[in-house]
Design a binder for these strands. Sequence first.
DNA 1: AGGGTAAATGCAAGCGCTTACAATTGGCAT
DNA 2: ATGCCAATTGTAAGCGCTTGCATTTACCCT
Lengths: 337, 337
Amino acid sequence: MKARPTLQDVSRLARVSTATVSRVLNEPDRVRSDTRAQVEAAIAELGYAPHFGARALASNRTSTIGAIIPTMENAIFARGIQALQEELAGAAYTLLVATSSYDADREFQQIQSLIGRGVDGLVLIGEDRDASVYQMLQERAVPFVLVWAWRADAAYPSIGFDNRASAVEIADHVLDLGHRRVGMIAGLTDGNDRARLRVAGVRDAMAARGMLLRDDQLIEAPYTMADGAVAAHQLLAMRDRPTALICGNDVLAVGALAAARDLGLSVPDQVSVTGFDNIELSGAVTPALTTVHVPHRRMGQTAGARLLAHCRAGEALTGAAFKTHIVERESVGPPPR
Amino acid sequence: MKARPTLQDVSRLARVSTATVSRVLNEPDRVRSDTRAQVEAAIAELGYAPHFGARALASNRTSTIGAIIPTMENAIFARGIQALQEELAGAAYTLLVATSSYDADREFQQIQSLIGRGVDGLVLIGEDRDASVYQMLQERAVPFVLVWAWRADAAYPSIGFDNRASAVEIADHVLDLGHRRVGMIAGLTDGNDRARLRVAGVRDAMAARGMLLRDDQLIEAPYTMADGAVAAHQLLAMRDRPTALICGNDVLAVGALAAARDLGLSVPDQVSVTGFDNIELSGAVTPALTTVHVPHRRMGQTAGARLLAHCRAGEALTGAAFKTHIVERESVGPPPR
DNA sequence: AGGGTAAATGCAAGCGCTTACAATTGGCAT
DNA sequence: ATGCCAATTGTAAGCGCTTGCATTTACCCT
């Protein structure tokens, strides 16, 4: 077990000062090419790799961006994270991904942990979080952007789309077809603005037609197919069975599809089902899911680009609004009869 | 912009030495409870969080385990990673996840980067990698385990299952039903032992029956549904059309399902399709996929447990073999006629 | 050759934390 | 009270790297 070589070992081998070695690593053109070659040879011979912690400590920067997503269990955030990572990699920045399991406390811990790790910036999902969190972020002067959220009057740089407006759109789509009895399976809205605003959007669309989403027509469910199926069962067992199920996300919608199949109900003939997010899964199920496409990759990429511009060029962090659009597939049709 | 509070700030506020603060953070019972309370109050008041790099530098450990997976784009590794993370969290260890995009060089970079970050251990997927990588790992004395792989004569601690044997099993399942014309859609086998061994297993099963997998009956495809669909189209267009498509993983299998639907072929009546991995998706598609269930969570959990035992108790790293089993769903039936 | 300037390199002071070791304190038996 | 031991707490030396400043070197002009 050889000890890990240090900058000093390298400097000794190359017969230069540690400062020079450090320069070779960080600003190569500030050292003469023959010294540089010498140093590089020593580095190679020793298999030297800088100690990240020491560097972070000394320089107070890490070339690292942190992102905290609710979960990795399903593909919701995967594409966006991938795009973010690609964007950062292009600038030799590293992405640290942590998960909160949709838990506010856990998210806070992870934020702390990432700050402790010295991230130069943070990407957070959505905007619902305790004011104290934002306060801490600002006191610590940690640059951050919010993704998957956007409002005209957002208090923080948000890169995303208008969840509420998009929900109105998909609800309109359903309502325009003539559906009058609808049920909604929403994600857990507590501390989750995406879920909350999507419900609000559906309510808006219904209200615009003088309709109302009754309490028993709305079920909140955790983020799994099984929970979506349970909720759908419950909704579809009602005396005035809904002719359309509007789901807060694709995973729940796929669960709803399964429930309909269990009950022998044909989709979309007897009941229509809509999703939200357009994850890969949605196109693979039968019937393929009509859903709202959200700009996964563009959000990730833009978040990365903005953060980089801020960290390297000092540009102010600003938000960005993207559009969503409905992807019409096979799970929606006019109401029966 | 307040500067980040340091241990010293806390010690000052609490009127104790920095050593004491450090102790309440690391070995709470070594400090008297009233001093501890005092320090904790100061920590809370300042919103202090330790500087990770400084700690790593001073203590030479990070309580961090790194994992490098090929991709986050699909759910293949998600469950295992989640389980790993949970296991580690229980011991106050942090998981750093990096992705290699199925690229050996990129994986090597990521290993370097994680080592530079001072991870106490590493979790790697599969065993196919350059000897120099293993050599480096050993020179640096970085503890690591391999998951998703297992062989009786494995050179390194492997926690997984026998891909080849499992492939034999699923192939037998298909062959036992009477299929004689089979096609295989494999993942890219280059540098990917899982994909390679699964092909080998299918060949074994066929050989045991005096059959042979012809070159034109085997197509390798990248890890996407679309690629699976393309490959399936090609296979199903052959004059002696296969009656069964054995796929190297579920994503490809779902693509194959879509291709069959495109071609108006009923699954499993006209063509059977099998998957491998049993990701959540497999149960949601229609027809539901018959596939090989692999112990995602147990692998992740065990990998974490072994690494922890090694880091904390010095236990030697050993491998573990798990069993897979076939999940019979709806995509496999006897050959037509 | 001498002088001046810019480029290249070295010096050394930390960055925030852990930890061996030293100093102090408290409790208890004598 | 006195003495002793164990429990607490403090002191201070780094951990490996970056970086402002000082020093040396190289090069060009006169």
